[in-house]
Design a binder for these strands. Structure first.
Lengths: 210, 210
DNA sequence: ACCTGAACACCGTTCAAGT
DNA sequence: ACCTGAACACCGTTCAAGT
């Protein structure tokens, strides 16, 4: 095929096709050859637009992080943390197969830094000391990343048995899966609220610690 | 080389060599061929003792989980949770390159179920309702997994700048790394203690909720 | 500038063959 | 039973060649 008048590919098209493939078939199924195939080109063609496979994965990760909402810090640090954590959690839960990209990847990407700055700044403006703000951001992020990383995270045998007893019919398997998703969400919410509650009474009462 | 009188390989030797390789060169560097090379055999020989590469990774994951301490529940649910979370965190922090195996892997492995049963049982014996016990176990596990997944998890630009300012000399780079590790640990501890504190006053006060 | 086809150095896994 | 050597169907990436 000769060079088309309008390019077949673009960095964004490659990035979006990669996320589709990851969502559909899982992260291990993403290869440059398979990705090229879904775009109707040869694998080598991708390298006109992206540097490496890792470059593609970085673009996918940034696309997910771009959806995270840090506007809640305008209302206060509690609201900021809750809004941030919930939108972060939702962005990852919408693409469970892509979570390892965010969990283990290097955090030096543009969108990551923007998000981190917004959170850290929001906490410091609310009166938390910088070091403490770092720790709080880290702890909440741990919760989000952990919750997104382990599907049906609990996986506790006793509990599984409870659900198997409740849904003995194979045709109900989709309900079991829906219930597992709800447990994951409830566990995350419980942890988030408990953590924020455990940070009370807030920065003002600790102001004497520089 | 003919068949030796004592086998060159065993499942345990393969598992330990795999963990060594992961610790040294990272998870992506682990291939069946490289693994075989460190053991002085051909790649095909490994398949006498293990079914697949995933089988090897499962064995590595189980080895890490086996070190987790759930004995603290004998003292009470707070002590149980803290001991469990800290020993789990320590087991993963000792092998950061292997963390993705635990974070994303299927949780159907023997050691995982044993650990999960101990934690869930400890919480239920302390009076927490089963559903709530599942959520609490899940939330604490999220914190552990998240903390282990993201090295220098905070990665917040402001904070990095603080450290770059404090350690402007390249020769101090190892101190920067040590400080980053301490921040990770402090963030995890802050989150853990805040979460457990946020669970007060404990199960007795909620006993009316079945 | 953009895409192709072939090539290179890798993978995980299988299997007949040797002892 | 245990290990080898060769093979199969894959990888990521490079590069000369075409338009």
């Amino acid at each position: 095929m000769p060079r088309p008048r309008t390019p077949l590919l673009s960095r964004d098209r490659i990035r979006d096709a990669a996320l589709d493939l990851i969502d559909r078939d899982g992260l291990p199924a993403l290869s440059m050859r398979r990705l090229a195939q879904t775009l109707g080109v040869q694998a080598a063609s991708l390298y006109t637009h992206v540097a490496t496979k890792d470059d593609v994965l970085d673009a996918v990760a940034n696309r997910l992080i771009a959806q995270v909402d840090t506007s809640g810090f305008a209302t206060g640090w509690r609201d900021g943390l809750l809004t941030w954590a919930r939108s972060y959690h939702a962005a990852l839960a919408a693409h469970p197969n892509a979570v390892p990209l965010i969990a283990t990847g290097t955090q030096r990407r543009d969108e990551f830094l923007g998000m981190a700055n917004a959170v850290h700044g929001g906490l410091v403006r609310a009166g938390w000391p910088a070091r403490r703000a770092t720790e709080i951001s880290g702890a909440v992020k741990y919760l989000v990343i952990g919750a997104a990383s382990t599907p049906f995270a609990s996986g506790f045998a006793d509990d599984v048995q409870v659900y198997l007893d409740r849904y003995p019919h194979l045709t109900q398997a989709h309900r079991l899966r829906a219930d597992a998703a709800r447990i994951d969400r409830d566990s995350f919410e419980l942890g988030l609220q408990a953590l924020v509650r455990g940070l009370e009474p807030g920065p003002s009462a600790r102001a004497e610690t520089p």
